[in-house]
Deep mutational scan, measured.
Amino acid sequence: EEPWTQNQQKLLELALQQYPRGSSDRWDKIARCVPSKSKEDCIARYKLLVE
């Protein structure tokens, strides 16, 4: 798996703010905001960050 770039991390953080918990299809929308990362990548990264 490719490491996360600073840019991808920033895009993930912005998308998390844009689509708060409870948004419909939240992770699909977030993944579309982060180039070359899947929905599963984004969820895994999020879990890593909040632990």
Rank of each mutant, 00 (worst) to 15 (best):
Pro3Arg: 09
Cys42Tyr: 00
Ala31Asn: 04
Pro3Gly: 15
Ser24Asn: 06
Cys33Lys: 07
Leu14Asp: 12
Trp27Glu: 05
Val34Tyr: 01
Ser23Leu: 13
Gln17Gly: 09
Ser24Cys: 12
Asp28Met: 07
Arg26Phe: 06
Ile30Pro: 02
Leu49His: 15
Ile30Arg: 02
Leu49Met: 13
Lys10Met: 08
Arg45Met: 14
Asn7Gly: 12
Ala44Phe: 07
Tyr46Glu: 14
Ile30Asp: 02
Arg32Met: 08
Glu40Asn: 13
Ser36Phe: 14
Lys39Arg: 11
Ala31Ile: 01
Ile43Gln: 13
Cys42Lys: 01
Ala15Asn: 00
Ala15Gly: 07
Leu11Thr: 11
Thr5Val: 01
Gln17Cys: 07
Arg21Tyr: 05
Lys29Ile: 03
Ser38Tyr: 01
Pro3Ala: 13
Asp25Asn: 08
Pro3Asp: 15
Asp25Met: 09
Leu49Gly: 15
Leu11Gln: 15
Cys33Glu: 13
Asp28Leu: 08
Ser38Gly: 08
Lys39Ala: 09
Trp4Gln: 00
Asp41Pro: 00
Arg21Leu: 10
Asp25Tyr: 10
Trp27Phe: 08
Glu1Leu: 15
Gly22Val: 05
Pro35His: 09
Gln6Lys: 10
Ala15Arg: 00
Lys37Thr: 00
Leu14Glu: 10
Lys37Gln: 04
Arg45Lys: 10
Leu14Phe: 10
Asp28Ile: 10
Val34Lys: 03
Asn7Ile: 06
Leu49Thr: 14
Asp41Lys: 05
Lys39Ile: 04
Gln8Thr: 04
Pro20His: 05
Gln17Val: 09
Leu48Asp: 06
Gly22Thr: 07
Ala44Ile: 09
Val50Pro: 09
Arg32Asn: 14
Ser24Val: 14
Val34Gln: 04
Ser23Pro: 10
Gln9His: 08
Gln17Met: 11
Ser36Glu: 15
Ser24Gln: 11
Leu14Tyr: 14
Ala44Tyr: 05
Arg45Asn: 13
Glu2Gly: 05
Ser23His: 10
Glu40His: 09
Ser23Glu: 15
Lys10Tyr: 10
Lys10Thr: 13
Asp41Arg: 02
Ser24Glu: 14
Arg45Pro: 01
Leu12Cys: 00
Glu13Met: 05
Leu14Thr: 11
Ile43Ser: 05
Ser24Ala: 13
Trp27Tyr: 01
Lys10Leu: 11
Leu16Gly: 03
Leu12Arg: 00
Ser23Val: 12
Tyr46Lys: 09
Arg26Asn: 10
Glu2Met: 15
Thr5Gln: 03
Thr5Arg: 02
Lys47His: 14
Lys47Glu: 11
Gly22Phe: 09
Cys33Phe: 14
Glu13Pro: 01
Ser23Met: 13
Val34Phe: 03
Ser38Trp: 00
Tyr19Pro: 01
Ala31Ser: 12
Cys33Pro: 01
Tyr19Lys: 01
Tyr19Gln: 03
Lys39Val: 10
Trp4Phe: 05
Val34Gly: 00
Arg26His: 06
Asp28Gly: 10
Thr5Trp: 00
Leu48Ser: 14
Lys29His: 11
Leu12Asn: 04
Gln8Asn: 03
Tyr46Pro: 02
Pro20Asp: 08
Asn7Phe: 09
Ala15Trp: 00
Trp27Arg: 02
Val50Phe: 14
Lys10Pro: 00
Cys42Pro: 00
Ala44Lys: 08
Ser38His: 05
Lys37Met: 08
Asp28Cys: 06
Asp28Pro: 05
Cys42Gln: 02
Val50Glu: 14
Glu13Ala: 06
Glu2Val: 11
Pro3Glu: 15
Lys47Trp: 04
Pro3Ser: 15
Arg32Phe: 09
Lys29Ala: 11
Thr5Leu: 03
Leu11Asn: 15
Glu1Val: 04
Ser38Lys: 05
Glu13Lys: 10
Asp41Trp: 00
Arg32Ser: 13
Leu16Ser: 03
Tyr19Ser: 01
Tyr46Asp: 13
Trp4Leu: 00
Lys29Gln: 08
Glu40Ile: 07
Ser24Tyr: 15
Ala44His: 03
Cys42Thr: 07
Gln8Trp: 00
Glu1Ser: 14
Leu14Gln: 12
Ala31His: 04
Leu16Ala: 09
Asn7Trp: 12
Glu51Leu: 03
Tyr46Ile: 04
Leu11Val: 09
Tyr19His: 07
Lys47Ala: 05
Leu48Trp: 12
Ser24Lys: 13
Glu40Met: 10
Glu2Lys: 04
Leu48Val: 12
Gln17Tyr: 06
Ala15Ile: 00
Trp27Gly: 02
Gln9Leu: 13
Leu16Pro: 00
Ser36Asn: 07
Arg26Ala: 10
Glu40Lys: 08
Asp25Ala: 05
Lys39Tyr: 01
Glu40Ser: 09
Glu51Ser: 04
Leu11Met: 13
Ser38Arg: 08
Leu16Thr: 08
Ala31Phe: 01
Val34Thr: 03
Arg26Ser: 05
Ile30Met: 00
Glu1Gly: 09
Asp41Thr: 00
Val50Ile: 12
Leu16His: 02
Tyr19Phe: 12
Lys47Arg: 08
Ser38Ala: 06
Gln17Asn: 15
Leu12Ser: 01
Asp41Gly: 06
Arg21Met: 09
Leu48Gln: 13
Glu2Asn: 08
Glu13His: 03
Ile43Arg: 15
Ser38Thr: 14
Trp4Ile: 02
Trp4Val: 01
Ala15Asp: 01
Leu12Glu: 01
Ile43Asn: 03
Asp25Ser: 07
Thr5Asp: 14
Ser38Gln: 05
Leu48Pro: 04
